[in-house]
């Protein structure tokens, strides 16, 4: 199955988070249009994979948005748009959509995140909840396969790294001319530090 259930620390068990990666998506225009028209069938976070460094980077944005959602202090229409905004290091929402959201003609590889929050769950007991969750996962998976014209790929670091556009990421997270990075000779270590600085920039958003 192309849709992975993502388990995060410190997230209530009533929240279910799913993620998928699609390569070479052909219908980005259609998908963005669904978001712009607030089509409730398309309540997803569509993320441009070229702006994402790693799985950890992605999960940080997801966690940040879920945390805000738990607080009830969303600054955008829903938790999905909040995920896209969480990638940014400042509070410019339009900017965040442009950089991390889906852009027709530019987005090639697409990460999809779906957060199902408690209000959409009605089950009383554990077994029923599990069945409901599985049905839901299947339904989301089918829906994505039907509407996203791209090649499903596993949401792994290996796949994500291939899609990363480093010059862009370095610009978005102000990683050019950073002494801590320029000093490093090892490319692997430098990427690890860039990931760390990006996550830090997101954590400090707007400060």
């Amino acid at each position: 199955m192309a849709l992975e259930k993502l388990e995060l620390e410190h997230v209530p068990s009533t929240y279910h988070i799913y993620g998928a990666l699609f390569r070479d998506v052909a219908n980005t225009e259609f998908l963005q249009q669904q978001l712009l028209s607030r089509n409730s069938e398309f309540e997803y976070a569509f993320i441009d994979a070229s702006s994402v460094i790693s799985r950890l980077h992605l999960l940080s944005a997801v966690y940040s948005a879920v945390n805000v959602s738990l607080d009830g202090t969303l600054r955008t229409p829903n938790v999905h748009s909040e995920i896209v905004v969480s990638f940014n290091t400042n509070n410019n929402i339009a900017d965040a959509y442009r950089r991390w959201g889906i852009t027709p003609g530019k987005t090639k590889d697409l990460i999809v995140i779906k957060v199902v929050s408690p209000r959409q769950f009605t089950a009383q007991d554990q077994d029923e909840a599990t069945t409901q969750q599985q049905q839901q996962q299947q339904a989301i998976c089918d829906h994505l396969r039907q509407h996203v014209q791209g090649t499903p790929a596993p949401l792994t670091d290996a796949e994500l790294t291939q899609a990363t556009d480093w010059p862009k990421v370095r610009k978005y997270y102000r990683l050019n001319g950073v002494p801590a990075l320029d000093r490093l000779a090892d490319e692997h270590e430098r990427r690890r530090q860039m990931e760390s600085l990006a996550i830090m920039g997101m954590a400090l958003r707007g400060l």
Binding site: S60, Y63, S64, N67, D71, T73, V178, P179, A180, R183, S196, L197, I199, M200, A203, L204, L207
Partner: peptide, 17 residues
């Protein structure tokens, strides 16, 4: 961190909380 001084990285925060 940006200057390369050995300190812990920040992972996530909620200043209001």
């Amino acid at each position: 961190r940006r200057e390369g001084v050995p300190v812990p990285a920040v992972y996530a925060m909620d200043p209001a909380a």
